[in-house]
Structures are given as C-alpha cells and as structure tokens.
C-alpha cells in the first residue's frame, strides 16, 4: 500500500496585515514588523489626560524632536517581546552559571580586603544609577511615541532593573548575604563626596521633562561614560589587582552595553537624518549633558582610576557622537 502524504496548498488572500502591506508591500512580513508597526493609537482619543490636559494620551509633542514617521526608529536587533526575552534568557543563563561558579568556588576569598572595599565603594553603588536608568527608560516608554521606540525603551528599562539586581547580588556575594555591603554602598551613594555629583545628576534626569532628552542624557551620555569608566577601565584595574574573577559577575553588563549601544546609535542616526532641527537640538542636549556629566563624574573617576580616566571616556563618547553625525 502506498501512502500519499497530502499537503494542502491553500492560496492566501493576503500576505500580511494591511498596515504592514502599506509600508512594505504585499509580501510575507517578519514577526518584528507585525508586532511593531502602527500598534499604538494615533487618532481620535476620547479624553485628555487629567494629569496633562494640554496633550493627548498619545502625543508626539512630549518631546521637541520632530519625526515625520516615528516608526523610522527601527530596532537593528529587531526586538519584539518574544525575541527580546529569548535573547536575554540566553545572557542570563551564562550569568547564572558565572555567579554559581563564583559562589561555589568561593572566589571572593582571593580578593584582598582593600580591593573588596573598592568594589563596594565604586561598583555596588551603581545599582542606584541602574535604578535611575530604569525610571528614565520607563519614562520614554510611557510618554514616547510609536511602538518602535517605546518597546525598545521598555526592554531597556527592564534590563536596567535586571542589572541593578545583578549589582546588588555582587554586594551580597561579598558580604555573605548579610546585606552589609549594600548598606555601605548606599551610604557611599548618599554621603560620600565622590558620588554626590552623580547622584545630583541622576536626580536631575528624573525631573527633566522631554523624554527624548532624558533618553539621550541617560542612554547615550551617562551610559557611554560609565560603561567605559566602570566596565572597561575599572575592570582592567581589578584585573591588575588580582580580582579578575569579578569580571565573571559583570560580563552580563559588558555584553549588554554592546547590544544596547548598537540600538542607541541607530536611534541617534535616524533622528539626525530626519532634519537639521533635530540635529541641532541633539547637539545642544548632548553638549549640555556632556558638560554636566563630565563635572559630576570627575571626582569619582579620579578617585576610582586616576586623573586621566575621564578624558579617555569622554573621547570615546565624542567618537560616538561624531559617528552619529551630530558634530
């Protein structure tokens, strides 16, 4: 007996949703496209928000940046929810085995008291910076315009919560779960002179109103500088001091920064390419926040790494700004 496998070929009526078809033509679409384009309402809102009655619920005027089409901010990583969590799950799996290995082998015992104190003084307080970044990215999620950028901001916001928690775990590993390292680090954050500039800057970002400006201040200026200072330069210093194993606990952040700056650079490029007005505005914001950040980070960078450190970080930031076509 011969078995005939029947596979029905049914003619589809259309290849994708009409809004995707209008943008890209009548052809099969990607999951990113169907899950991203035109998801957010743009017309016929019923009521003005009581909390901001001069604007609509979804309103492009919550930033001074102007875009013809807010969906120009395509995410080069093509993250929609499913793609995002699966990518992060892979990263956390590696992180989890790193943390487990570190704890099982009790690698903390190879770290000198002096270096341990440095980690608590310089690395662990960054959990509060990550928390600020969480809020600043949620700000763009809530008040930004168009799913392309607001979903990417949400993913970023959740990442920052995750990294705040990883940094807290580093503290707990160092203090044997007593929480003392976290208390010490918070005291640093609240009281030590070297941190006050950065804390004041964090508080300032949290009261800044233009969401695109907040995004640039946080995700470009502050992140670029801190990434270089902490996850490159301070990491090198720990290596030299025999505390290279800490690198296992910050690998997540290193990978994350690569992943995210790719997205952020694309956002900047797109905004700049849109108009000279956007470019001028971005240049002005970046100059302002670069100036504030340089001032705020100076004492911290010097105490943590020495006199040259900040200049190196600023140079890298300036390269990224130039590459985005801003200067």
């Amino acid at each position: 007996m011969s078995i005939e496998i029947k596979t029905a070929t049914l003619e589809p009526v259309r290849n994708t949703y009409a809004n995707v078809e209008r943008r890209f033509g009548d052809k099969p679409a990607t999951r990113y496209q169907e899950a991203t384009y035109d998801l957010q309402s743009e017309a016929n809102f019923h009521y003005r928000p009581l909390w901001q009655p001069d604007l609509e619920l979804n309103d492009p005027r919550r930033t001074a940046i102007v875009m013809q089409d807010w969906y120009a901010f395509k995410d080069p990583r093509q993250f929609y929810y499913g793609a995002y969590v699966q990518q992060r799950a892979k990263m956390q799996e590696v992180a989890e085995s790193n943390y487990a290995f570190f704890e099982k082998r009790d690698l903390a015992r190879f770290i000198s008291d002096e270096v341990r104190a440095d980690i608590i003084r310089y690395l662990v307080p960054l959990r509060h910076v990550e928390h600020t970044a969480n809020l600043n990215n949620m700000y763009g999620t809530a008040y930004g315009f168009g799913t392309a950028i607001t979903q990417a901001l949400l993913f970023n916001g959740m990442d920052r919560l995750g990294m705040a928690q990883y940094l807290s775990r580093i503290g707990l590993i160092l203090d044997g779960n007593s929480g003392d390292a976290l208390v010490d680090a918070k005291q640093q954050w609240m009281e030590a002179d070297i941190w006050q500039g950065l804390r004041a800057l964090c508080e300032e970002t949290l009261v800044t109103e233009d969401w695109f400006e907040v995004m640039v201040a946080q995700n470009l200026v502050l992140d670029a500088l801190l990434t270089d200072l902490v996850y490159r330069q301070f990491d090198n210093k720990l290596n030299e001091q025999g505390a290279q194993d800490i690198g296992m606990l910050t690998e997540f952040m290193q990978l994350w920064n690569k992943d995210t700056s790719r997205w952020m650079d694309a956002v900047l490029k797109t905004a700049v390419a849109e108009s000279d007005e956007n470019r001028a505005l971005l240049a002005q914001w970046i100059e302002t926040w670069r100036g504030k950040a340089a001032e705020a980070l100076a004492p911290l960078a010097e105490a943590m790494l020495g006199a040259e450190a900040l200049a190196e970080a600023l140079e890298l930031l300036d390269k990224r700004i130039a590459k985005a076509g801003i200067k």
Binding site: H128, H131, L161, S168, G176, N177, K186, M190, A200, E204
Partner: peptide, 23 residues
C-alpha cells in the same frame, strides 16, 4: 553565606534601590 528567604532577598535586591532625594 547566610541563607536568605525570598522576601528578604527581594527587599535587598529591589526594594532598597530607592533613596531620599537631596538635590
């Protein structure tokens, strides 16, 4: 290392991220 229950762990990892504003 001391064993942390879920509630304490969550408090340390998450709830204490906040701070009193000064500036």
């Amino acid at each position: 290392a001391k064993k942390l229950n879920i509630k304490d762990k969550y408090r340390l990892l998450t709830r204490d991220l906040d701070w009193e504003f000064s500036y």
